[in-house]
C-alpha cells in the first residue's frame, strides 16, 4: 500500500465526517487493531534495514497525523453538539409529581398537637358519639341548668342519652377513669353543636382539649404552659392575659386572650375594637370532676384547657368565613 495514497485519502475522508459514530468508524479503519496503520506496521520487518528506517518514520508520522486530525474533528463535532443544546430552556416548567394539600384544619391541629407533644403531652383520640354522662354530668354540668345552654347538643334518635359530643372534654372523663395520674394529654377532634350556619358559626367544628393531672399542678403552671404554647403558635411578640371566667368543669377558670394579631392591640374589626382576641378557655380541674372519675382531689390537682381549631386557623391565616373549611374548594385548599 502506498503511504502517500493513504495520506491524500484521509484528508478527503475526514472532511465528510459529520458524526461521532462516523469518526469512530474512521478511527477503527486506520488505527484499529486490524486497521491500515497496523497493516503497514506489520510490513516493516520484511523490509531492508535502510528502507525500514525511512518507512518506519513515514508510518509514524501518518499515525501522528491521524491522531491529530481525529482529535481536531472531535473538537468541532462536540462544539456543534453544544450548539444544538442551546435550544434547551431551563425556563420551562420543571417535571415532578405535584403535591396535594393537607386541609388547613389538619395542619393547625397537627401544629397545636406537636407543640404540646414537644412539651411531653400524649395525643389521645375519643369517640364522637358520647354518653350524656361523659359530655355533661361527669364534667360537673348539671342537666337542667343555664350553664348547659352554652353546650347545646345534638341527641341521637333511637339511643337514649347518647349524643354527639359538644366539646372534646368528655375525653378527660374517659382518660381519667382509665389511667392513673400523672397525666399530660391533648385531645384533638370534631365536635358538634346545633348552631345555625353563618360566617362565624358551624354545627360542626374542631377543638383541641388538653389537661394535666399530678400531685403538684398549679394555676401558675397553666399560665406558664399556655404562654409557651401561644407564643409558639402566634409568635413571640404577642401579649397574653388570663381573664376570670366560668366553666362548670374548672375552678378557678380563665379565658385566655392574646393581643390582636391583626392590629397589634390597637383595636380593629377582627377583635371587635377590644385589641384582644379570645383563643382558649382554661382552668384548674374542678374537684367535683375528680370525684366523678375516682381521683382523690386531696391528693391530685390538675388543669385543663380547650380551644377552637377553626377559630385559630381563621386568625392565623386571615380566613373570614368558617364555611370555607367545609366547601373543599380546590382554589382554597391549594393555598395551604
Amino acid at each position: 500500500m502506498d503511504i502517500n495514497v493513504v495520506l491524500s485519502q484521509i484528508d478527503s475522508e475526514i472532511q465528510n465526517i459529520n458524526s461521532s459514530e462516523a469518526l469512530e468508524e474512521f478511527r477503527l479503519k486506520y488505527l484499529g487493531r486490524k486497521g491500515i496503520v497496523a497493516e503497514l506496521t506489520s510490513a516493516i520487518p520484511s523490509l531492508s534495514k535502510e528502507e525500514r528506517a525511512v518507512f518506519g518514520q513515514q508510518v509514524n508520522s501518518l499515525k501522528n497525523k491521524l491522531l491529530s486530525i481525529i482529535a481536531e474533528k472531535q473538537k468541532t463535532l462536540s462544539a456543534s453538539a453544544n450548539k444544538a443544546s442551546v435550544s434547551f430552556d431551563i425556563g420551562m416548567p420543571g417535571i415532578a409529581q405535584e403535591f396535594g394539600h393537607l386541609h388547613p384544619l389538619t395542619q393547625i391541629t397537627e401544629e397545636i398537637c406537636s407543640i404540646f407533644s414537644r412539651m411531653g403531652f400524649s395525643v389521645v383520640d375519643g369517640p364522637e358519639i358520647e354518653t350524656e354522662y361523659n359530655n355533661f354530668t361527669g364534667l360537673n354540668i348539671p342537666l337542667e341548668h343555664p350553664s348547659r345552654e352554652a353546650f347545646d347538643t345534638f341527641y341521637l334518635k333511637d339511643y337514649s342519652k347518647m349524643l354527639l359530643r359538644s366539646h372534646t372534654s368528655p375525653v378527660q372523663v374517659r382518660v381519667m377513669k382509665d389511667k392513673k395520674p400523672p397525666l399530660a394529654i391533648v385531645v384533638p377532634g370534631r365536635v358538634y353543636r346545633p348552631d345555625a350556619v353563618d360566617a362565624s358559626h358551624s354545627f360542626m367544628f374542631h377543638q383541641v382539649e388538653g389537661f394535666m393531672v399530678g400531685k403538684d399542678i398549679k394555676f401558675s403552671d397553666l399560665k406558664g404552659l399556655l404562654e409557651i404554647f401561644a407564643k409558639a403558635i402566634f409568635g413571640n411578640d404577642i401579649k397574653m392575659r388570663f381573664r376570670p371566667h366560668f366553666f362548670p368543669f374548672t375552678e378557678p377558670s380563665a379565658e385566655v386572650d392574646i393581643s390582636c394579631i391583626i392590629c397589634k392591640g390597637k383595636g380593629c374589626s377582627a377583635c371587635g375594637r377590644k385589641g384582644w382576641l379570645e383563643i382558649l378557655g382554661s382552668g384548674m380541674i374542678h374537684p367535683n370532676v375528680f370525684k366523678q372519675v375516682g381521683i382523690d382531689p386531696k391528693k391530685y390537682t390538675g388543669f385543663a384547657f380547650g380551644m377552637g381549631v377553626d377559630r385559630i386557623a381563621m386568625l392565623k391565616y386571615g380566613i373570614n368565613d368558617i364555611r370555607l373549611f367545609f366547601e373543599n374548594d380546590l382554589r382554597f385548599l391549594r393555598q395551604f
Binding site: 409529581q97 396535594g100 394539600h101 393537607l102 384544619l105 370534631r190 354545627f203 360542626m204 385548599l333
Partner: peptide, 15 residues
C-alpha cells in the same frame, strides 16, 4: 402519602 401522590384533603360534614 396521599398528599405526596397529589391528592388534597377534604373535610365534609358528618351530618
Amino acid at each position: 402519602m396521599l398528599v405526596g401522590l397529589g391528592l388534597s384533603e377534604a373535610i365534609t360534614y358528618s351530618l
